[in-house]
Computed example of a mutant assay.
Amino acid sequence: MEKEFVKLPENELDLKRLIQTFNTTLETIEKRLSRLEKMDSIEHRVEVNQIDLSDIKDSLQRIEESHNNELQHVNRRLDSHLVKIAKLEEELIISIKK
Rank of each mutant, 00 (worst) to 15 (best):
Q50R: 09
M1Q: 09
K16D: 11
Q20I: 13
R17M: 15
T25S: 07
I19H: 01
E65D: 10
Q61A: 15
N68R: 06
T28Y: 07
E27H: 00
R45Q: 07
E64S: 11
N75R: 05
R32P: 00
K38L: 13
S59T: 11
I94D: 02
E4F: 10
V46P: 01
S59I: 11
T21D: 06
R77K: 12
F5E: 04
E89F: 14
Q20D: 04
E10N: 00
D79Q: 11
E89L: 15
K97H: 09
R77Q: 13
I63Y: 10
Q50D: 10
L8P: 07
K97Q: 06
L8V: 12
E10G: 02
L78I: 15
L53W: 14
K16N: 05
K97A: 13
R32K: 08
K87Q: 02
D55K: 02
D55A: 08
A86P: 04
K97I: 15
I42A: 14
S59W: 10
Q20T: 13
E27N: 03
Q72G: 07
R45L: 10
E70L: 14
D40A: 08
E47V: 00
N23L: 14
D40E: 12
R76P: 14
S41V: 00
K7C: 07
A86G: 05
R62N: 05
L13I: 09
V83K: 07
S95R: 02
I93R: 00
D79R: 07
Q50I: 07
I94K: 00
E27F: 05
L60I: 04
E43N: 05
L18T: 10
S54T: 07
L33T: 06
K16I: 13
K97C: 08
S54N: 12
K7F: 09
D58P: 02
T28Q: 13
L78E: 13
I42T: 05
D52L: 00
V74N: 12
S80R: 09
N75G: 15
E89P: 07
I42F: 13
H67I: 05
H81I: 15
N11L: 09
L92G: 04
T25Q: 02
L82W: 01
N69F: 12
R35V: 04
K57N: 06
N69G: 03
D58Q: 02
R32S: 13
L60S: 15
D79M: 12
